[in-house]
């Protein structure tokens, strides 16, 4: 396990699909860096380029520009680095005519690494599939396939785990188990997790840092805390509102919010806001800090993008 340095580096990564009417830019100049031991969230609306980026990261599709570096080595010149990566893509595609256990045995042999066979039973137990291990995968529900996909991703004890929509098809209990598993991979086992999900509440709970991709480009990259702080504000009920607004404008961004105003100030700045209002002769009736959740931040960012 790398103790320092980037585990994943995408440098100006691009993918353009040739078409009759010119190229379609699925991904444009994406550059991100994921450090060892991080849980990194990769977010974006449908069609934003998440899956294409993940497929390039896994060597499934070739970039038309830029570079993927894993564990400090260029993937193109050293594809063997992928042997340190475990992945769940497309909800866990498996051989439908084989049992869950047999699918994992096939993967263990394909990988050829030491100890993978011995990990099959504990992993089936861990993902809650021990009871269905001998059943053919074609009889599995979406959630069961997803669980088997996670087991497959962890089979050869990878240093980097890439999970594309890992909670799809899981029930509430399954989602909670998955959340704990992901945090455990990072906190207890020191693995790096690269996670894509459209369930932003889950991302907010498990990720250290996120990148938001829209129309093939990274539009924001920050820690969860930074991202939420960026959209922090104060909701102020005051009278007269027009006077309140003009007293604060110039120092903070102010916008009407129903019968109140919303000021883009942090909670620490609240006393200064109140002093200004009182000094301007405004009556203050109420002040409440407003913190948006990740979903609201995500929507505001992706909707800021005029093309999105």
């Amino acid at each position: 396990m790398e103790s320092e340095g980037a585990v994943v580096e995408l440098v100006d990564l691009s993918k353009t699909y040739r078409g009759r009417r010119g190229g379609v830019h699925a991904v444009r100049n994406v550059s991100i860096s994921v450090g060892a031991g991080e849980v990194y969230g990769f977010l974006g609306p449908n069609g934003a380029g998440k899956s294409t980026t993940i497929r390039m990261l896994l060597g499934l599709i070739a970039p038309t520009g830029g570079e993927v570096r894993l564990f400090g080595e260029a993937l193109r010149s050293n594809p063997r680095t992928l042997r340190r990566v475990g992945s769940l893509v497309d909800g866990g595609a498996f051989y439908p005519f084989l049992s869950g256990r047999r699918n994992l045995q096939v993967l263990a042999r394909t990988h050829g690494g030491e100890g993978a066979d011995a990990r099959i039973d504990p992993l089936l137990e861990q993902v809650g599939l021990a009871h269905a291990a001998e059943r053919r995968v074609k009889g599995y529900s979406t959630g069961m396939r997803q669980r088997l996909g996670v087991a497959a991703a962890l089979l050869h004890d990878p240093d980097l785990v890439i999970l594309d929509e890992p909670v799809n098809g899981l029930d509430a209990a399954g989602i909670q188990e998955m959340r704990m598993l992901i945090r455990n991979l990072c906190d207890e086992q020191g693995k790096t997790v690269f996670l894509s999900s459209h369930l932003l509440h889950e991302v907010q709970q498990v990720c250290d840092r996120v990148a938001i991709i829209s129309r093939g480009e990274i539009v924001r990259e920050a820690t969860i805390a930074e991202l939420l702080r960026q959209d922090e504000g104060l909701r102020i009920e005051a009278s007269p509102l027009a006077m309140a607004q003009s007293a604060l404008e110039g120092r903070w961004a102010v916008e009407p919010d129903g019968g109140a105003i919303r000021v883009a100030a942090t909670q620490e700045e609240a006393p200064e806001v109140v002093r200004r209002l009182v000094g301007a002769g405004v009556d203050v009736f109420g002040l409440a800090p407003e913190r948006r959740n990740l979903e609201e931040v995500f929507l505001s960012i992706t909707q800021e993008d005029p093309d999105a």
């Binding site: 497929r55 499934l60 042997r83 475990g86 051989y95 990988h111 497959a152």
Partner: peptide, 11 residues
């Protein structure tokens, strides 16, 4: 079966 993506990482 959509399974190439399952094995191409390993070899």
């Amino acid at each position: 079966w959509n399974t190439w993506k399952l094995v191409v990482l390993h070899r």
